[in-house]
């Protein structure tokens, strides 16, 4: 009934710890220049006030401004390198992805901030996620022209 999988801001500790450590002060939401971060309310009252990202509406653009303002260690304050972020892993739905249906589409590949590492085009045609490098920012999910998105970021499990 309630939403349980949330894409947390960059630098977040693992989910079970994040729920305990975040003091829900809202500073990460305030400093975010893209207003990507929203606070939980009706989605799950037990997680009331916790920050998360709705990638399809507005993804994380990895400006790395939120981790240094976290007062409680819910986001790793020392994180500055966007390549080391791990929010989730993108998964491609091959049944709906246009490239796999035979069309020529490389929207996710062109917009990936970890360019040509996290997303690779096999034979210059089919996108493949390299899990080792994917940071889970959700930009691919945001730009996907298919409705609903054919590439979806799955938040990390514990």
């Amino acid at each position: 009934m309630f939403k349980t999988k949330f894409l947390r801001p960059p630098g977040a500790v693992k989910e079970s710890e994040f729920v305990k450590k975040c003091i829900r002060c809202g500073k990460c939401q305030q400093i975010c220049p893209y207003n990507s971060i929203v606070l939980t309310s009706w989605e799950n009252p037990f997680y009331f006030g916790l920050p998360y990202i709705i990638a399809r509406k507005k993804p994380c653009y990895l400006c790395m401004k939120c981790p240094p303002v976290c007062p409680s260690g819910a986001l790793d304050r020392t994180l500055v390198d966007k390549n080391k972020v791990k929010m989730g892993i993108a998964r491609i739905n091959r049944d709906t992805c246009w490239a796999y249906q035979g069309s020529f589409c490389r929207a996710c590949f062109m917009n990936c901030p970890i360019f040509d590492k996290a997303l690779k085009m096999t034979d210059e045609l089919l996108p493949v996620v390299i899990e080792k490098y994917c940071v889970g920012c959700g930009i691919c999910e945001n730009v996907c022209p298919v409705e609903p998105s054919a590439i979806i970021v799955e938040p990390l499990k514990d």
Binding site: K21, I23, C25, K27, C32, P68, P71, S72
Partner: peptide, 29 residues
Amino acid sequence: HKQSFLLGTFYSFKLGPIHIVDPFIYLTY
């Protein structure tokens, strides 16, 4: 969006480098 000197809510307020926190929130934390 433009500054990070003053940020926050009454749960915790950032004043320069200092994060002032609500005593009850911090004790439960």
